[in-house]
Amino acid sequence: MKKYPFKLQLQYFADEKTEKATPKKRQDTRKKGQVAKSTDVNTAIILLLVFLCFWFFGSYFGNSLANMMKHTFQTYLLSSVNEPFIETMFTELLLQAALTFAPIMLVAMVAGVFASYIQVGPLFAPEALKMKLSKLNPIQGAKRIFSIRAIVELLKSLLKISLAGVTVFTIIWFNLEDVMLLSQKSVTSGLNLIGQLTALLGIAVAILLLILAVPDYIYQKYDHEKQIRMSKKDVKDEHKNIEGDPRIKSKRKQKQMEMAMQRMMQEVPKADVVITNPTHFAIALRYDESVSDAPIVIAKGVDYIAQKIKGIALDHDVITVENKPLARALYMQTEIGDQVPEALFKSVAEVLAYVYRLKTN
């Protein structure tokens, strides 16, 4: 057995389609028109509804065709042939044919839409209508013709043709006596019999195809799920695309921190006091009794940021007070925008009182 390097084996297993498709992959394939759908379901439902229409409204179609033929023989054959007559005749025949067969076309259209809807739901995929030159590739076409899927479709077609042939033969066999007596019946009776047999044959074949369409739809669903499977690498790449590249996320987070730091530093000049420990911590407090009941932390930092806060405070004549325990407690117990905890009210009040005395002197 040929052995491959570990790296190639690892890549093979990473690219193997073993994972179920993610919701995003399903949505993307759906937009492309790639859905689990059986054409047999569409064919069976269309045939069934159309032949049921013939069964229930066959007399209407027969009478319409009979009237059209009667009008043709009684009127058109006795008229002189010229250009206006041909135009009039063509228009009348076309209108009568449209009125006769429009209900059948409407039923077929509704049946097709209904059959597609119950399989895939509401779907509009214009991307599936785009012309792709790759579909004209003879090599790819040959692969599709001689693929496992093509063999399955061939076997399905042979099975359907065989069963449909048996069904038609059986129905005709049971009605063979009536068929043999057609030559002795009137035209009207013969046409009625032929119409009834045709509708019966159509309904029977449609029901047969509908029964065969159930396992076909199950197979199409299974095959579709197999086609859209993903490898572990595909899942990771999709997650990375959704969440963003870690390096980009890190840069974005760093940029957000820089902007937040800049806004915080802009608030330092508005502080009433900066409490330090004095080298590691710095907390800027502001008290406005019209806004809050207690002083608010508008900036805080440790080490480099603490030194920067103290530098800005010095540049804008904000009083700095050294109180190691209070500075550490405020840094640990508060976030920017928080009010001073009630447990620290007394210590902060003493500091602010000291600051106000300095400002008034």
Rank of each mutant, 00 (worst) to 15 (best):
F124S: 09
S64A: 11
L48W: 06
L49P: 00
V235C: 07
I46P: 00
W55N: 02
E87Y: 02
Y287V: 03
E225G: 06
S64K: 12
A128L: 02
S231C: 00
T75S: 09
L197F: 06
L93R: 00
V355I: 12
G121Q: 10
E92H: 03
M332P: 03
L285W: 06
A97P: 00
S116A: 11
Q262G: 10
D223N: 12
L106F: 13
L163T: 05
A329M: 08
A21M: 07
D315M: 02
K185E: 09
K233C: 07
L106D: 09
Q256T: 02
P84M: 01
K308N: 08
E92M: 00
H280V: 13
H224G: 01
I207H: 04
W173C: 12
L191Y: 05
L159C: 10
A306V: 11
K270E: 15
A115I: 11
L129G: 04
A327H: 12
G141C: 03
R26Y: 04
F6M: 15
K236G: 04
Q227F: 01
I275G: 03
D237P: 10
A98R: 04
N82S: 14
H71M: 11
A21C: 08
K232T: 01
A282G: 01
A108T: 02
E335Q: 13
K185M: 15
K308F: 06
L10Y: 13
H280Y: 11
K236I: 09
D245G: 01
A204I: 09
I194S: 07
I46F: 02
L330Q: 10
M89I: 03
L154W: 05
T100I: 11
I296R: 11
T72W: 09
S186A: 11
V235I: 15
Q339P: 06
Q184A: 05
F90Y: 09
R357T: 12
D272S: 11
